[in-house]
């Protein structure tokens, strides 16, 4: 079991007039090797939630267990937690600072206290796995294009070999191709290393295509927590809180409302195509 969250609450500016509850009694379990999408509109508490998982924010109430250990225990090493739970923030390229791309990627493993040789090896591996060609290793990170910068920044987190990888809107600001490349990369890595991946996103379409489980946050609560198909059945409720199910989900439900008896479970274009073809086949 990677994470157990037990009635976790978090309040900003506690005790002042500006007190605001960002998380309200959230209980969750996350298993090793899961690929999870966390969805919610701005201010729903999703960013607050993930920042608890690597101890950047400390819950005002409740407990969090990582691999069975209480992370708020006096003796618990939070820095060690942070190396095991890698976090890619929104616009991660804004954290690049070293003279060369390679050095920047070394920053994480170096902080882990690894010997020089291992640091180099890990940085190399990480840069390779994000598909950044060797010729960019020795250039300044500030000379890369937007998409390349983002890859370099993600490599900086991967080089720490985290067993849990959290990504906050990793595709923000990228064009469609850049977005697909990054998401494919994450999915590939998930398959290859079997690590736990938590993907925070606004886009239902992206999430539906990749994840096995969706957690919908609203006003600091977990509103839904299920496989995509089940979550999107609640598309009306999702809409009420400012979220939308993928377009194909709407399509399937609208077809059914018109009396066209098609299976409504589809959440991706491929699934929808198959469902419609099957339905047409049945009409014959």
């Amino acid at each position: 079991m990677a994470f157990i969250l037990d009635k976790v609450s978090y309040r900003y500016s506690e005790g002042t007039a500006y007190e605001m509850t960002a998380l309200d009694q959230v209980s969750l379990q996350i298993q090793d090797g899961e690929f999870i999408g966390v969805i919610g509109h701005t201010g729903s508490g999703k960013s607050t939630l993930i920042q608890h998982l690597n101890g950047l924010l400390k819950a005002t109430e409740g407990a969090i267990y990582f691999n069975g250990q209480d992370i708020y225990d006096k003796d618990y090493d939070l820095r060690d937690l942070r190396t095991q739970v890698g976090m890619v923030f929104q616009y991660p390229e804004h954290q690049l600072f070293e003279e060369t791309v390679f050095k920047d990627v070394c920053f994480g493993p170096k902080n882990q206290g690894l010997p020089e040789k291992d640091v180099t090896l890990r940085a190399y591996e990480a840069l390779r796995s994000v598909g950044l060609p060797d010729k960019y290793f020795d250039v300044s990170p500030f000379e890369l294009s937007g998409g390349q910068k983002r890859r370099a920044a993600i490599a900086g987190v991967l080089a720490m070999k985290p067993s849990v990888l959290i990504l906050d809107e990793p595709t923000a600001g990228l064009d469609p191709r850049g977005r697909d490349e990054i998401l494919d990369l994450i999915a590939e890595m998930h398959v290859h290393y079997g690590n736990t991946v938590i993907l925070v996103s606004h886009s239902m379409e992206d999430v539906a295509k990749y994840v096995d489980r969706i957690i919908v946050m609203d006003h600091g609560h977990v509103m839904f927590d299920d496989v995509p198909r089940e979550v999107f059945h609640h598309y009306r409720e999702l809409e009420e809180i400012g979220l939308a199910a993928p377009q194909v989900t709407y399509l399937m439900h609208e077809m059914q409302e018109r009396g066209l008896d098609v299976n409504c479970d589809a959440t991706t274009v491929d699934e929808a195509r198959d469902a419609i073809l099957q339905w047409i086949g049945n009409q014959r």
Binding site: D175, P176, R177, Q247, V269, D270
Partner: peptide, 17 residues
């Protein structure tokens, strides 16, 4: 390097089928 809206893409896929 561009997308099309999901519905257009679906229609395209169905057309192909």
């Amino acid at each position: 390097r561009l997308d099309v809206p999901q519905i257009t893409l679906l229609a395209h896929e169905l057309q192909r089928a």
